[in-house]
């Protein structure tokens, strides 16, 4: 019975989170984003809208902050050192930061969900179970990156008027009101890639799974892959930048190293590494 279960597996239940919880991680999907290459063109965001059935909510609701943009291009114009104050060439001071769910391994959104609608998968993903969500919105409040979005209305009723509904991606659902949602690292593509590999009787290899944003990025700034795969490009990039999972502070003494993860100091252990933009002084 469960009492026996608790007593026998006590140390597992108390320590397993150090290895990955109930399961061994099969994959650890991650990203590396080179901000040197990012031009802030927003193609990734558009691709995300198309791939993930994100509703377009219209100007008014967007202005009210009730839109959904799983991948948003954050634009900052406030770097005076780089000429942000320059009225004529303001874009010199501009910097871009494509932000999508960071799939933190110590995600702050997960433990606060009252109904366990968000959890960690064996793929190292921070998954959101729409059917289970009751919309308490605590997860979004506790996300330091503010990367979770809420369905304030039944957006699907207006977002895809005939015949636009024909372009919806059949691989994933359309969400109704009252549900939290966020970037899934294109979980439907991961599923397809894994299924294909299984059919062919092989391991998933680098390049089998590409997220919509990585596929669309014209400058190939976004690299997606499995961090547990030693040969994956993303793993090599992480290694080259000496960024590791499970380490809250990266060594920045070497000027050549540009890798960082957003708000690392909060110890959320995100799976997305950014490479800082290098500029002429």
């Amino acid at each position: 019975m469960s009492l026996k279960n608790i007593l026998e597996n006590w140390s597992h239940y108390r320590r397993a989170h150090e290895e990955g919880g109930h399961h061994e991680y099969e994959h650890m999907w991650g990203m590396a984003i080179d901000l040197n290459k990012c031009t802030g063109c927003n193609a990734c965001s558009v691709a995300c809208y198309a791939e993930n059935n994100l509703p377009t909510v219209g100007k008014d609701r967007m202005r009210k902050g009730q839109g959904l943009h799983w991948l948003r291009m954050e634009r900052y114009w406030d770097e005076p050192d780089l000429g942000g104050d320059d009225k004529e060439y303001q874009e010199r001071g501009g910097s871009f930061l494509p932000m999508m769910c960071q799939h933190c391994n110590a995600a702050t959104c997960e433990p606060v969900c009252p109904v366990a609608a968000t959890y960690h998968t064996p793929d190292g993903l921070n998954a959101q179970v729409y059917n289970r969500c009751i919309g308490s919105r605590y997860c979004s409040n506790n996300c330091p990156y503010r990367l979770r979005y809420f369905n304030f209305y039944s957006y699907y009723e207006e977002s895809w008027p005939e015949p636009l509904n024909m372009q919806l991606n059949p691989d994933l659902s359309v969400r109704d009101k009252g549900v939290m949602e966020k970037c899934t690292f294109c979980i439907q593509r991961i599923r397809t890639g894994k299924d294909a590999a299984q059919r062919e009787g092989r391991e998933v290899k680098d390049g089998d799974v590409v997220t919509a944003c990585a596929q669309t990025c014209p400058t190939e700034a976004i690299v997606f892959g499995d961090l547990l795969d030693k040969d994956a490009q993303v793993t090599k990039l992480w290694k080259a930048q000496e960024v590791e999972l499970g380490r809250a502070k990266q060594d920045k003494s070497d000027g050549e190293l540009r890798g960082y993860r957003v708000l690392e100091g909060l110890n959320t252990d995100p799976c997305v590494m950014y490479m800082d933009r290098v500029r002429e002084a």
Binding site: V112, P114, I134
Partner: peptide
């Protein structure tokens, strides 16, 4: 009232479900 899906509010209660689903006892809301 503040729940997005009010009709599912009872999911916060720890009732025995045959699907083995429980509320998340780590959440301060629980």
């Amino acid at each position: 009232i503040h729940l997005g899906r009010v009709w599912n509010m009872y999911w916060v209660l720890p009732y025995v479900s045959d699907r083995g689903i429980w509320p998340n006892f780590r959440s301060p809301l629980v």
